[in-house]
Design a protein around this nucleic acid. Structure first.
Length: 290
DNA sequence: AGCCAGGCCCTCC
DNA sequence: GGAGGGCCTGGC
């Protein structure tokens, strides 16, 4: 089935830039798991070609449009955040990289797993969580698993999570899953809350600090002003903007939100992805050159 | 081998 | 409230 696309779109940058952890690329196709379906996407000249199973494509199509936020006018976002030549260059490099609208629960657990880790490992951890505790999905000879529900994950327990290689994050995942099961926090309602209120609610969860909370707000809770300051973004802000001024991470976040405005989170993602890829390229060059 | 990874929590001041 | 250290593990 085809989804017509008139918006700028870079599927690789969107799906493989550390927003979501379940997408794989092969032969120009991106394979993932969404809405209890195995989903395959490809960008062609007319738009997005996609297949899904086991559900009907007509049922999944609007959900996919929502997930990719194809309604967001990216050029208007760029006009809002392009405050200087350096971020303009990062935007130009990854023009079409979109911020996803993910399921808040899956997003939350994924980013609890991300702390002091790296994307290849996070990807492996999340996939292990799914295959061990999620419902299997078989379709057309391929097999993936749904992301486990809060009940399924709360039932896992810390020790079994630790055996998946989560390290000390296992306790955070178990605790947060239990909090959600207990009904102490309803993630879905956070979309209607203000940025500040939703931030406070998330930070109360075990294993969730300012950075992780801002990731969840940005990638799943309709808060485009969220600005997660991770190690890469911290470096970039220091290199490009702060000119030797030492700021604590929350102050750095606030500074960036003031500078980049209501779509600061988009600026964040371009700064992050640009620096992360630049590092990868330069290390590859070092190896081949020595 | 050793450093770093999309940080968080706890302690101490 | 802010700085500093510890932390599981694996990728490179």
């Amino acid at each position: 089935m085809l989804i017509p696309v008139s918006q700028p779109l870079d599927l690789a940058a969107t799906l493989l830039s550390g927003q979501a952890f379940r997408w794989r690329e092969s032969d120009g196709w991106f394979d993932g798991v969404l809405f209890d379906n195995i989903v395959r996407l490809r960008h062609d000249t007319d738009g997005i070609e996609f297949t899904c199973a086991p559900d009907d494509e007509r049922a999944i199509q609007p959900l996919l449009v929502d997930y990719l936020r194809l309604d967001v006018d990216l050029d208007a976002v760029y006009a809002s955040i392009a405050t200087d030549p350096r971020i303009e260059a990062a935007i130009a490099r990854f023009r079409g990289m979109r911020i996803l609208r993910q399921d808040p629960w899956e997003c939350l657990i994924g980013f609890i797993c991300s702390s002091n880790s790296n994307i290849p490992r996070i990807t492996k951890n999340v996939e292990s969580i799914c295959t061990t505790f999620g419902r299997p999905i078989e379709a057309n000879g391929s097999s993936r698993s749904a992301f486990p529900t809060p009940v399924e994950l709360a039932g896992a327990g810390e020790s079994r999570l630790r055996r998946l290689g989560l390290g000390y994050r296992a306790g955070f995942v178990a605790s947060t899953a239990q909090t959600i099961v207990d009904g102490a926090l309803d993630l879905a309602t956070l979309r209607e809350d203000s940025y500040e209120d939703a931030l406070d609610a998330l930070i109360a969860l075990d294993g969730v600090g300012d950075k992780v909370a801002n990731c969840v707000l940005l990638f799943s809770l309709d808060k485009p002003e969220a600005f997660p300051v991770d190690t890469h973004v911290e470096q970039r802000l220091n290199e490009w903007y702060l000119d030797g001024t030492k700021l604590s991470l929350p102050k750095m976040r606030h500074w960036a939100q003031e500078r980049f405005g209501p779509f600061a989170g988009y600026a964040n993602q371009y700064l992050f992805h640009d620096r992360r890829l630049r590092l990868k390229v330069s290390t590859t060059d070092d190896r081949s050159g020595s």
